[in-house]
């Protein structure tokens, strides 16, 4: 399943030319993110599967990758490792932002945070706040 563009056609904002890949299997979450980000001018692609998400990300056509940790076929952490491995992904300019509600040991979180460009606990950030967060990231 792929969800492209504007789901409700209500966006009146100008495109800001930035492309976001959202690797997320929870449909409601991706729907909310698509709505908020589209309104803010991003073009957003949703991919619910880990392996396919990795394949899409590796094409290097995105500026921002929102990566959930609990996703089918491959965990988000494995996707992150593959994207950071020069042998598997020789070039990637996108910023990787982890989006998760998963509770984990501090050591694991620190390890993930070190490899990613941002770490967001979904329960702590509303879609509006996510847009604000992304606008502060240098791309």
């Amino acid at each position: 399943m792929e969800l492209n563009g504007e789901p409700n056609n209500k966006s009146t904002s100008e495109s800001n030319g930035k492309k976001v890949l959202c690797i997320e299997d929870e449909y409601f979450i991706s729907e909310l993110y698509v709505r908020a980000l589209t309104k803010a001018g991003y073009s957003i692609t949703v991919e619910p599967d880990g392996q396919q998400g990795l394949a899409l990300a590796a094409t290097d056509q995105f500026d921002i990758i929102l990566l959930d940790l609990m996703i089918p076929s491959m965990t988000g952490f494995e996707v992150l490792k593959a994207l950071r491995d020069p042998a598997k992904t020789p070039y990637l300019h996108a910023k990787i932002i982890i989006t998760t509600n998963l509770e984990q040991r501090e050591e694991v979180r620190a390890d993930i945070e070190q490899q990613a460009d941002g770490y967001i606990v979904k329960a702590e950030v509303t879609p509006r706040e996510l847009v604000e967060f992304l606008s502060n990231i240098d791309i």
Binding site: E26, F28, I29, L32, N101, K122, A123, T126, P127
Partner: peptide, 9 residues
Amino acid sequence: RTPLTLLRG
């Protein structure tokens, strides 16, 4: 947490 995230969203 997940349903709450959605509810607030």
